[in-house]
């Protein structure tokens, strides 16, 4: 279904007082007072500003017995099959990926979850949208006990730090902004130092007890 442009006009609005800004404010590249709140504004509009806004396609109702219906909306007319699973889709359910590829929301969801069926935390199936900084997390957990206020965190923190460092060792190198693994290295070293500290302390007290110094 071709996109339909609707009546709303392209309007530039002051983000402080919501006053609609006139043309004199736009593309001057000098601060201009907002007619509503007198705040100084610099605004630039681009050709896309005047492009009509396309509304999403609306699905047509099934009118006769011959019409194929949408798998997800039986009352709606199917317009295209999903190129992955073959289900018939109405205009509402059709996700056009370009290159004559049309998929249904179920297939997009399956692609997001990957072959394991689990939700991938790092991607939403359309490229990386979020990243968890496990290396920073490990470094903070390893460093907090050194402040002495959180010394007790060392008991639980050391295994967590070692787990994070091993499990997510390659994680910093991924994504659009690769990081070095230096945080993992420092965190692991701090964790090993804390283990060494606990062992030394244990041996010290053990020797004091066995030699009757207590």
């Amino acid at each position: 279904m071709p996109p339909v442009s609707f009546a709303p006009q392209p309007l530039l609005v002051c983000d402080r007082c919501a006053t609609i800004l006139p043309g004199a404010v736009t593309n001057t590249f000098e601060p201009v007072a907002c007619p509503g709140c007198r705040a100084l504004l610099v605004a630039q509009v681009f050709p896309a500003f005047f492009r009509p806004i396309a509304v999403g396609a609306a699905a047509e109702n099934v009118l006769s017995q011959e019409d194929a219906s949408c798998f997800y909306h039986p009352a709606k007319k199917a317009v295209v099959p999903c190129t992955r699973c073959g289900r018939f889709l109405c205009a509402l359910c059709d996700i056009d990926l370009g290159g004559n590829r049309h998929v249904c929301p179920g297939c997009v969801d399956a692609a997001r979850r990957g072959p394991t069926g689990k939700q991938d935390a790092a991607t939403d199936g359309l490229g990386v949208q979020r990243r968890v900084l496990y290396d920073s997390m490990a470094l903070l957990i390893a460093a907090l006990p050194l402040t002495l206020i959180f010394w007790w965190l060392s008991f639980f923190g050391v295994p967590v730090v070692l787990y994070l460092s091993i499990r997510y060792w390659n994680e910093p190198r991924r994504g659009d902004f690769p990081r070095t693994r230096v945080r993992f290295v420092i965190a692991a070293l701090l964790a090993v130092l804390q283990i060494g500290g606990w062992i030394t302390l244990g041996v010290y007290y053990y020797q004091r007890r066995t030699h009757g110094l207590d």
Binding site: F71, R84, C85, G86, R87, L97, V103, G106, C107, V108, A110, A111, R112, R113, G114, P115, T123, G125, L126, G127
Partner: peptide
């Protein structure tokens, strides 16, 4: 409708 094929063959990413 047949069950969905494995998602490995398709990735929007």
């Amino acid at each position: 409708i047949d069950p969905l094929p494995p998602a490995a063959s398709f990735s929007v990413a």
